[in-house]
Each structure stands twice: as C-alpha cells, then as structure tokens.
Amino acid sequence: MLTPQVGENIGLSQQLTTQVDHVFVFLEIFSCEGGIQSYVKDVFQAYLESSKPLRAEVFILRDTPGCTNPFESDRFKFHYFKTTSPLLGRVRMTAALFTHLIRQRPQHVFCGHVKLAPLVGMLCQFLGIPYTVMTYGKEVWEPLPKAMKSSLQKAAQVWTISRYTREVACTVNNLNPVQVKILPCAVDGDRLTPGQKPTTLLERYGLQDAKVLMTVARLWSGDIYKGVDITIQALPQIAEVFPEVKYLVIGRGDDQPRLAKLAKDLGVSDRVVFAGFVPTEELVEHYRLADAYIMPSQEGFGIVYLEAMACGVPVLSGDADGSAEPLLDGKLGWRVPHRDPKAVAVACIEILKGEDQRCDGQWLREMAIATFGMDAFQQRLQQEFLSLSKLL
C-alpha cells in the first residue's frame, strides 16, 4: 500500500480538524521560474490577501519539501511528491490526493496544468467535486488527447489568461466559451518601478551612451517564436537611424549559438549582448537599462510586457496572439507581425524617437497598473471564487 513520503507534509489524519475550502494541484512551482510559475504565485498571494479566511491544500508533483516557499502558512498547506522516479511520484500524489479528497471533501479543486487534468477530472468526477482547469497559452492551442479534452469539457470552469487563448482553445478542443473564464496576469507595481539606468550594469554590458533594446526570454530552440532572431535581423535597419543602438538579450538556452551566429553573419554581433540568466530579484534594474522592450512573439499573454511597462519602458509585441491584452490592443504599445523584421525595425525606430504617448513612461506605468496591478487581480480572483461558490 502506497503512503505519502515521510517529511512530505503533516499527516493527513491530523488535518481533518481544519476545514479546507479548496485544493490546488500543480506540476511545479518553486523548482523553476517562468510565466506559469509567476502567475501561480500571484494567485497564491491574492488568495492569502482575500478578505474571507479561505484555506487550501496544495499538491505539487515535481517540487520537494526543501524548496523555498514563502506561502507556507495556516491558510496554505503544501504536499510535495518529487522522487527519483517520476512514475512513483505521480502514483504517490494520486494516492495522497484521492485520500485527501475523500476525507476533506473540499468545495472546489483547481488543476494547475492541462497535463494533470485527466487525473484531477477522474477523481473529482468520481467523488462529485467540482473542479477548474487553469490554462495559459500554447499548451491548449492544438487539439488535445481525448482524455485531456474530455477533462476540460467536463470541468465546472476553465481559467485562461487571454481572449486569444480562449478563442483558440475553444475552437480546436470544442470547449464552450461560456465555460472559459479569463483571469489575466498581474504585475507587482511595488516591486517593479522606474529608475535611472544603473551605472554598474551599463559598464558590465558595455551599454554606455547606447540606445538599448531588450528582451527577456528563454533561448530554447523550441521557443524561436519569442522573436529574438527577428529583432537581430531588424538591427541593421534600426542602426541606420540610431547608430548607437544595442540589443540586450536576457535568458539562456540551446538556441544561443544560432542567434550569435546570426548576429555575426549580419554584421551586428557588436550590437547584441547576451546577458545569460538573470535572477528575478535583479530583473528590475535590468528593465531600467532598456529604452524599449522588444518581443515580437506569439504569447498566451506575456507578463514581461507588463513588467517592462511598470518600469516605464515602452513595449513592442506580435500582433496575432494574447499580447493584445497587456498592450490593451495596441493602446499601450506597438503590435507588429511577429516574423517581420522590417515591421519590427520601423516600430523600434518610432519608439526610440520617443514622440508617441506610448513612450511616456509615467503614463504607461499608471495605465498598466490600473488595469493589471495586484489590486485589480485580487478583485478578479475574488469574483471568480464567488462565481464558483454559486455553482455549488
């Protein structure tokens, strides 16, 4: 008989004295960084700040008890299931989750990734517990396997972060649009603020007296849609107007050699600076280096656009994706065909000239925070919890 690992969490039998309102189930949160993980942490923060004293249990398949977790409290209890055998970890989590759902009968279960939806859907349907599946972007842009699709179709709700993802997911996976609720990403305006370009970073990257374009992205060969290569291709045209332009690329991955070769072949390698991985706590000062944030991508939403705008940096995105939302359909930034270097170059030149209202850093920050700040996010989240309670 399988039982939870020692040290994994408090014994389940000891938790029965405390009513649990919700259960969350995720692949991973604290063992890696990315847009999904950032979004989940914002959900947790809003949950903790809810005026109603909600309590939740959180089951995480690929994190360990030793991870840094700032959300451990009497409102959140975490269960970790990472083992050297992925299959064993999944079996253990399934057993622990099933036991917990039987004993506690929470009001609602939130499935944090479509890959976990068949498991959560099976258990919740068997026990008659309503559940919500959280989606983010490209993982639901293509037709899903039958079990995943069925678990989404049978969910009480599906959450997603943009109109674009809702439209694509509903079309390709035959979901009811009424069932799919939009809960966009949030930006922390207290942490992300404008400021002077840090002298130490200007010297580190050789950006003194430069007009700085910047992108923060994974440089994986499977993620070329981020548009770093397109921005590099746009540099020669931009340099004709702004010969001091440089491109700061923050991130790491196996696609960097290809990108470096592309810059060399185009004669702009001296303009492209690969900064590598930058910890989250250092990103604010890096955003302050930028005169423009450039990512002609295909995004489910694009939290990085909000982060840049909160720092007073004008932004450029693709025009056929979920980035319409953070840019308010172009009101807050430039949207261009995402694989068009000439369009990127023209927009970058406009941004660097600084004549458009969308280049007004203070206005840009105020608009972004008013729409996507943590207060707005918390209000949306509380409305969703209220709507779910009406489903009971």
Rank of each mutant, 00 (worst) to 15 (best):
F372H: 07
A368L: 01
Q19T: 13
Q45F: 10
I29H: 10
K115G: 09
K211V: 10
K181E: 02
G227F: 03
L201K: 00
K149L: 01
F277I: 02
G361Y: 12
G137W: 06
V245L: 11
I102L: 12
S150I: 04
L328A: 08
S51K: 14
M295Q: 11
P145R: 08
A345P: 04
Q14F: 14
P243T: 06
L381F: 09
G137S: 01
D42Y: 14
V216R: 02
L152H: 01
Q357R: 11
V140A: 00
V216K: 03
L101D: 07
V58N: 05
F372G: 02
E57L: 08
V249I: 11
V284W: 06
R105E: 12
N176Y: 06
F59C: 06
V313E: 00
E281Y: 07
N69F: 06
M134F: 11
E28Q: 15
L123Y: 00
L328V: 07
D255T: 01
A217V: 07
S387R: 09
P279K: 04
G322E: 07
D360E: 12
A234N: 04
W159P: 04
E282H: 11
W220K: 15
S73E: 10
T199Y: 08
L127I: 05
R358G: 11
L306M: 09
P118C: 08
F110G: 01
L332Q: 03
I303G: 03
H79C: 10
L97V: 08
A169D: 01
Q382A: 13
D356G: 08
L54A: 12
Q362T: 13
R90H: 15
V25H: 11
V109I: 10
G300W: 02
N69M: 08
V315R: 06
I10N: 10
Y136V: 07
Q45H: 13
Q298L: 14
P143V: 07
M122A: 12
S13G: 14
C170H: 03
P53Y: 10
R204V: 11
L219D: 03
V43I: 15
G35A: 11
V168A: 00
L2H: 15
A324N: 07
L116Q: 10
N69I: 04
G206W: 09
F78E: 07
D255K: 03
G227A: 08
V120G: 04
Q104V: 12
G330T: 05
V23N: 11
L54R: 12
L262R: 12
L192Q: 02
P177H: 10
T165R: 02
V23C: 12
L381V: 05
Q196D: 08
S389H: 13
E33Q: 15
Q107G: 09
